[in-house]
Each structure stands twice: as C-alpha cells, then as structure tokens.
Design a protein around this nucleic acid. Structure first.
Lengths: 127, 127
DNA sequence: CAGGATCCAAAAGGATACTG
DNA sequence: CAGTATCCTTTTGGATCCTG
C-alpha cells in the first residue's frame, strides 16, 4: 500500500495540515471577528480592541499565518503618513466560517448547554 | 451588556472550549481511528499500532481527555489475568466525525488539492 | 496606526524505561 | 496488555517596551 520511496507521515495529512492552520489559540476568534457585522474590512487596532486580551505580537502572527494560508487578505494604504491596513476574509475564509459554526453547534448540543454562548452574549463567538 | 458581576473571558466561550477538546495533536486522528472499519471497539495497543508514531504517554493522555469529555467510552475487562480494555465512540463522538469530515473537505477544496489525502491513501484520515 | 523586538513562563509533546 | 513515570526539548503564548 505504501511503497518505500515515500515515507508517509502525519505531516502530509490534509486534516492535520488544516488543523495546523486553525488550531492555534485566537485564530478562530480572529476569523469570527472578521466575519461579524456589516463592515467587512477591519483594522489592526480594531481587531485588537475587540479581542480584548490579545497582544499585538500574537495578533500580528495570526494575521500573517492566515494571510499566508489564504483565508484572509490585507489592503495596505501607504498614501498618507499614517499607515492604514484593512483585513478581510477571502472566499476560503468565509467558507471556513461554517465549520466554526458547526463546532459551536456541536459544543452547544453535547457539552455546554445553558451556558454563556447559548445566551447569545458571547463576545467572542456570537455572530 | 455585560454587567460587572460577571467578568466574561474567552475561557467561557463555547467555541474556545470545544477547540480545547479537539484541538490537540493526535486527538482528531484517534477519533477517526475509532470510527474506521466494521469493528467499533478498539484496544489500546491496536490504536497505538495504527497511529504509528504516537507514544503510549500521549495516547493515554488523549484517551483520558476524550473519555472525560464524553466523546469516547471504555469497557474494561479485569476478569482474566491480562487486562483488556476496549475504546469506542459515544454518540457525541460519532456526531463529531462529520465536523472532521467538513474540515477535510475544506482542506481539499481550498488548500491541498492533488495531494495525498485526495489519493485516498491517507492512513491517518481516510475513512 | 500598525506593528516589530526581546525576554520569559508555561504548556505541550516526545524518548525512554519500567510495571501490575 | 495497558498503561505509568521520568526526564527533556520544543513550541507556544504572553508581558513589555519600542518604532517608522
């Protein structure tokens, strides 16, 4: 089944690789934050304010990872003296939101009934 | 919106808590391994052999976490001199498999076309 | 405003050997 | 067989301060 010319490791696994994209802390919440509301473009400090406890270092790292992986994109406007950058979900990023919703529904169904998210006040994942 | 009697942190978030259950390395692959095949009960060393590079320490940890969270259960037979334990998915564990499948499909659709998992030989996530 | 640079603590994972 | 126990390395995340 597996020939000796190719050592198959878990790092080649699609599920593994996908989890590596979205399994890190804050990543999913950044995606949800970008998905919320009418305005689809969000600024760096805007995200930072919404994700209250995130540090600029982590936010910067996650945004870079997500951009590398194609789930988000970034418009940079250098024309003025103050830098302006707007992050937004790409098509694949939007498509990923439904997985996050499935995760949330699974959690509500099996594990966390009557807790906070269900009250629709979860500032992190409500949308 | 949030009153001062309750400081809402991300640790209360359903999505966050659910990710903590399933976001660790190997967890998803253990669930898939339990889902595969006709025989639904699997032994410890059977799982260990299938998940080639996993160490007993990690497998033991993950199984315990999954049991604590109710995604799997464990029948222990102490009647003979050799211990025998069989792990199997609970209803919530089976229900979680479709999320893993959605993750795999997302990965195949957007990121990893024409790579290994698509060839249906992924020993880790194929099912 | 949008980050980058440093430093540090904690967690997670892995290697190896051992046990009832 | 089904795990534990130790030890150790690597990864991750966070705090804090700094900059074009």
């Amino acid at each position: 089944m597996l020939n000796s010319f190719y050592v198959y490791t878990m790092k080649d696994c699609t599920v593994y690789k996908t989890m590596n994209i979205i399994g890190k802390r804050w990543t999913i919440h950044i995606l949800l934050e970008l998905y919320k509301g009418e305005k689809k473009e969000k600024r760096f400090n805007e995200l930072k304010r919404k994700l209250v406890y995130i540090t600029p270092k982590i936010l910067s790292e996650r945004l870079k990872e997500l951009e590398d992986k194609g789930l988000i994109a970034n418009k940079i406007d250098d024309s003025t003296n103050l830098p302006k950058s707007e992050y937004y979900l790409t098509e694949s990023g939007v498509d990923f939101i439904k997985i996050i919703q499935a995760i949330k529904l699974w959690g509500l169904k099996w594990k966390f009934q009557n807790e906070d998210c269900e009250k629709a006040i979860c500032m992190y994942c409500d949308h």
